[in-house]
Amino acid sequence: MASNQSDLKKSIMDTKTLPTLPNVIHKLNSLSDSDSSSVQEMAKIVSSDQVLSARILRLANSPSYGFHRVSTISNAMILLGVNVVKSLALSSSIIAMMEHDSIGLWEHSLGVGSAANLIAHRLKLPECEEIATAGLLHDIGKVIIKLKCSDVDKEIQLRVTTRQIYSLEAEREVLDTDHAEIGGWLAKSWFLPDKLSEPISFHHDVEKSCNNRVKTAVIHLADVLIKSSGFGDSGDDFVPSLQNIAWDILKLDKQLLDELVYELEDKLIEVKNFSFEMLSN
C-alpha cells in the first residue's frame, strides 16, 4: 500500500501533466513588475483574450468580490487596480477548471471566497481582494486530485460515505497527502505569492503558516463557516474544528460570530443566485 500511495502521490504531483495557466497571466505578471508599462498596455493584453475578459468581468461582479459597476477591462484596471485584476484573472482561470465537473465544490469555493471577503472587510484587514482570491482557490488541490486521478477521487468519496470520515482523512489514507498540501504545491509551481499559497496549504492547520497567519486564519474561519452553513459540497458534510489559534488571531467572540453569520447568510442567497445564473448560461 505504501508504494501504491507514493506512486499516486508522484503521479498527482508530476509537473508535466499539471494544468497550465493562460499565457495572458504570465504576460500580465511580467508587465506589472516593470515600471515602464502602462495600465492601457495591460488592459490591452487582457482584452486580447475575450473568454478570459468575460470571465474576469463576470467574477468581478460576483458576490465574492461584489464590484457591481465594472463593465470593461480598462474600467476594471482603473477602478480596481492592477493587483485586483491580476487576482481576478488568476481565480477566473482556475475556477474554470471546476465550474462544470464539480458544481458542489465550485459553490463551496464561491461561498468561502465570499465569506473570506466579508470577514476581511469586517475586521478591516488590508488586501481584502487577495483574501477573497485565496478563499476561492483554497480547495484547488481537490480539483487536481479529481482532474488527474478520477479513480482515486471516487475511492476517497467512497471512504467518506461508508465510514463517515472527513475527506481530509480519506485523502491521507489513500494518497499519503491531502488536498491542502497538493494545492500549496501547485500554487508554488505556478509561482503564486505566499499570501495565496500559505492560506491554500495551511487552511486546515493555521499554526504552520509563518508569513501570512492572519490571512490563513481568515480562510480557515471562512471554510468552517461555509461548512457550518451546509452551503455547497466540499467532499464531506462535517464541520471541522475551529482552531484555537484562529479564534485568538481574529479575536473572535460570540457577538462577532453572530454578526458575521447574519451577514454571510444574507450574502449566500446572492451567491446561490449567481451560481445558478452562471450554470444555466
Binding site: 468552517v224 463557516l225 457550518s228 452553513s229 464541520v239 474544528s241 475551529l242 482552531q243 484555537n244 479564534w247 473572535l252 460570540k254 460570530l257 453572530d258 453569520v261
Partner: peptide
Amino acid sequence: PHNAVLHCVY
C-alpha cells in the same frame, strides 16, 4: 468549545 459556540450561533 469554539464549535459549540458556533453551533449555538447558527
